[in-house]
Simulated assay, not measured.
Amino acid sequence: MENVNYQNLMFGFLIDDEAQEIFAKIDYQLKDGVHFQNSGNQTRYFGYIKRNMESLKSYYHQFFGVLLSEGGEAPDNYFYLDFYGNDRGNISSKHRNILKSEYVIIGFIIYKIVYIDLDVLLDSVQKLKEKIRIDYDDYKRGIYYLIAKSKNVGPGNVNDAILDSVIQSALQEFKKIGWITLEGDEFSLLPAFDRLIKIYEEYILDIDNTLNELK
């Protein structure tokens, strides 16, 4: 009986009615850095993880050395895989999603626009690009430097067109990991965008100085 209870704790997620259809998709996406929340086409996956949180948490800990974590507070909570300190676990490096530094800075600026400057109605990609180019002109030199370093070119080779391309790529990456929705010219922040704040909290709390250092 004790062994049966242990198996239920370890593998209960496999006997869930939806396991055969959706577990593999969830597993691959979690390992690719995707965050799941109760929103849009993630709702079903979110429900599965929520129902099986304990057994899934045990599975990822025992077999991959990573932590299935829950961020945020209901109804804006979300699930994602995290590491134990500096231990990167047993997930292949091909699945370890590391945001480029210029994407992180774009995320900081989006955070400032929406949560500090309270431009909560901003939902156009084109308007976001224009706002960063014009209203955040003071920071462009630093952003150009980060882009140039990433592309291994001189800062003089970076211009507004390339900046627009980086903003677009950042948004696509944020969509990929479940931080935003992005359809054509429209985007919106999802609850898991909060993960950016949690990872880089010390920089976010001092966001003006963080961005000023890019000048």
Score class of each variant (00 low, 15 high):
residue 105 I to S: 01
residue 135 D to M: 02
residue 161 A to Q: 12
residue 50 K to G: 00
residue 211 L to H: 05
residue 180 I to M: 02
residue 128 L to G: 06
residue 120 V to I: 11
residue 88 R to S: 05
residue 37 Q to K: 06
residue 121 L to W: 07
residue 22 I to G: 03
residue 98 I to Q: 07
residue 135 D to G: 00
residue 51 R to T: 08
residue 136 Y to E: 04
residue 195 R to T: 07
residue 127 K to W: 06
residue 174 F to Y: 15
residue 86 N to L: 13
residue 133 R to P: 03
residue 215 K to W: 11
residue 112 K to V: 02
residue 125 V to M: 07
residue 84 Y to V: 12
residue 151 K to R: 14
residue 104 V to T: 12
residue 122 L to P: 10
residue 48 Y to E: 03
residue 12 G to K: 06
residue 149 K to R: 13
residue 92 S to M: 01
residue 96 R to Y: 09
residue 205 L to H: 04
residue 127 K to D: 15
residue 123 D to H: 14
residue 4 V to T: 11
residue 213 E to L: 07
residue 88 R to G: 01
residue 151 K to Y: 15
residue 89 G to F: 04
residue 211 L to T: 05
residue 211 L to C: 03
residue 82 D to L: 05
residue 158 V to T: 11
residue 49 I to F: 08
residue 178 G to A: 04
residue 156 G to P: 08
residue 203 Y to K: 13
residue 95 H to Y: 13
residue 62 Q to L: 15
residue 32 D to A: 10
residue 41 N to I: 08
residue 119 D to T: 06
residue 142 G to M: 11
residue 138 D to S: 13
residue 74 A to V: 08
residue 124 S to F: 04
residue 126 Q to K: 14
residue 49 I to A: 10
residue 205 L to R: 12
residue 94 K to F: 13
residue 105 I to V: 14
residue 162 I to C: 02
residue 81 L to M: 02
residue 3 N to V: 09
residue 143 I to D: 09
residue 153 V to T: 15
residue 58 S to G: 01
residue 208 D to P: 05
residue 18 E to W: 05
residue 91 I to L: 07
residue 176 K to M: 09
residue 60 Y to W: 09
residue 192 A to Y: 01
residue 108 F to A: 01
residue 73 E to S: 04
residue 115 Y to V: 00
residue 191 P to Q: 10
residue 159 N to F: 03
residue 215 K to I: 11
residue 62 Q to T: 08
residue 184 G to C: 07
residue 176 K to F: 15
residue 101 S to K: 12
residue 95 H to T: 03
residue 128 L to R: 05
residue 79 F to P: 04
residue 51 R to E: 12
residue 90 N to P: 00
residue 43 T to M: 10
residue 20 Q to L: 09
residue 179 W to I: 03
residue 160 D to S: 11
residue 156 G to E: 03
residue 49 I to L: 08
residue 134 I to Y: 09
residue 84 Y to R: 09
residue 50 K to W: 02
residue 174 F to C: 07
residue 116 I to G: 02
residue 86 N to M: 14
residue 50 K to A: 11
residue 204 I to H: 00
residue 40 G to W: 07
residue 203 Y to Q: 09
residue 66 V to Y: 03
residue 172 Q to H: 09
residue 109 I to E: 03
residue 172 Q to G: 06
residue 59 Y to K: 13
residue 42 Q to Y: 01
residue 69 S to M: 07
residue 171 L to T: 06
residue 114 V to C: 10
